[in-house]
Design a binder for these strands. Structure first.
Lengths: 257, 257
DNA sequence: CCGGTTCTTGTCGACAAGACCTTAACCGTC
DNA sequence: GACGGTTAAGGTCTTGTCGACAAGAACCGG
């Protein structure tokens, strides 16, 4: 109640005296997303012990009492991939369903990390224990995960779709220099749409600050074609990205949908 | 435990053997927002005991091992206000900084609840212990809160501003039937902007599904005026609201900003 | 040199959103 | 009952944005 017989507003019913609070384990799970061959992938690890032995799971670990949640996520990311970048981490949800871990009461906090070129990192670890999995394989239900990690990954995907429209998270998927085609591929893969290259260029390059031309040009692919200009990320990506998802599919159907 | 010393990527360093996981208290804090005299308010309670005695705080309580986080938030909301509506609850963040509660390790999960007409509920309880506070008083720093609750409330406000553009949360602030002026006041108060009444009407009433006219009309205010039509919320509010925040202030400055 | 491919620039039209005005309906007072 | 004040509702015009589409530029291989 707002006010019980005592006067402590933070307390729960007498059966839940704060001095006898139910203990929980608190963990941090990091959903690591990256682009590989034009598709969105998530980094998963294979469990070596029960429960859910041999199943794929999201990397994570226990929060320490001396660190914040953000620091715990940063530490886990560094332990898993060797990447030290706290700015790429975004908290997206907390999960505490009873029985989600059959061994004890665990509340986990989900973090989203966007990296580029995780392939080399994954290869460096034991390949049998870590792998990049296309998110499409998870979203269509053809692959299940340990615990409630499938739900956690789903929520992370949904979050990155929103972040893509609101923040400049797209540049985290590409390298320090990139072509606009690469950047456009990020939007197309994550949103599952097809964007007009000309209009995309206009939106991104119009008011400068989004991307900065370097003057150099990329080498064409094996199929030839005109070499694309190389850009680097500008500093204006904190106040909302330049590309927005189409709210209503304009009259013509998209082939890719 | 999740893992033993070997081969399991889910584990932490040996100093953190899962069998000795550090215990945390897990609480749920509910930021209850409502409209009062044209401004956005938050329901706060006054602490009666140390720490932070006599300071304002967000209502909350311990999560029980047998309930989910959502259920805990729903229970807390019912205990505080008597309102039983889980659909209005939105989780927006987790907070676990060390020392945020000087007594023990506490991780709290923040929930946002949008209600209408909390005034009667607050009046029903002990008025000295619960109160509606304008969020403006919190955002400008003139009032501090216990623990890290100021940060929690700030995050909740930011979240409701986003939800307003993405979901149909605006209808949760008004009654079951409402005028478009009332609905517009919600947007104006939360975003701090001034919207053109004519354009607002077009956006909301254009493609029906947002609001449904009831045929009845409201009684004019004390200053007179033409009576407004009464609407009720449609069912199309799950796929994004009709009103979007202006991304770029078009050439003319707004008087209210 | 010549098609094939990709990047870049240009133009056009549809649509959405803001600014502004006019009409409609109710109040109070005189 | 007439009149000004107030608020709601509807209409029109302009502006800006966004998507579709066409055309040119720069590289490839043969």
């Amino acid at each position: 109640m707002v006010v019980t017989t005592k006067t402590n507003p933070l307390d729960a019913p007498a059966t839940y005296d704060p001095s006898q609070f139910p203990p929980f384990a608190v963990t941090v799970d990091v959903v690591i997303l990256t682009m590989a061959d034009g598709r969105l992938h998530v980094l998963l690890i294979r469990r070596g012990e029960a429960p859910y032995k041999d199943m794929w799971a999201v990397p994570g670990g226990f929060k320490r009492p001396t660190e914040t949640l953000d620091e715990a996520a940063k530490r886990e990311l560094a332990e898993e991939t060797g990447v030290d970048a706290a700015s790429l981490l975004t908290q997206f949800g907390a999960y505490g369903d009873p029985g989600r871990d059959p061994r004890m009461n665990v509340v986990t906090v989900g973090y989203l990390a966007v990296l580029r070129d995780v392939g080399a990192i994954v290869a460096g670890t034991d390949a049998a224990d870590a792998s990049l999995v296309p998110v499409a394989d998870l979203l269509n239900g053809s692959l299940d995960l340990a615990f409630d990690h499938l739900r956690i990954v789903r929520d992370a995907i949904e979050r990155v779709r929103v972040e893509l429209a609101v923040t400049g998270i797209a540049t985290a998927f590409v390298g320090s220099t990139f072509t606009l085609a690469e950047l456009r591929a990020v939007y197309e893969a994550i949103w599952g749409v097809q964007l007009d290259a000309a209009n995309f260029r206009r939106s991104v390059a119009a008011d400068d600050g989004w991307v900065i031309p370097t003057g150099r040009r990329s080498r064409p692919g094996p199929a030839g074609g005109r070499p694309a200009e190389l850009y680097r990320a500008g500093r204006a990506w904190q106040a909302g990205g330049p590309i927005h998802r189409q709210p209503s599919p304009s009259r013509k159907e998209r082939t890719k949908a």
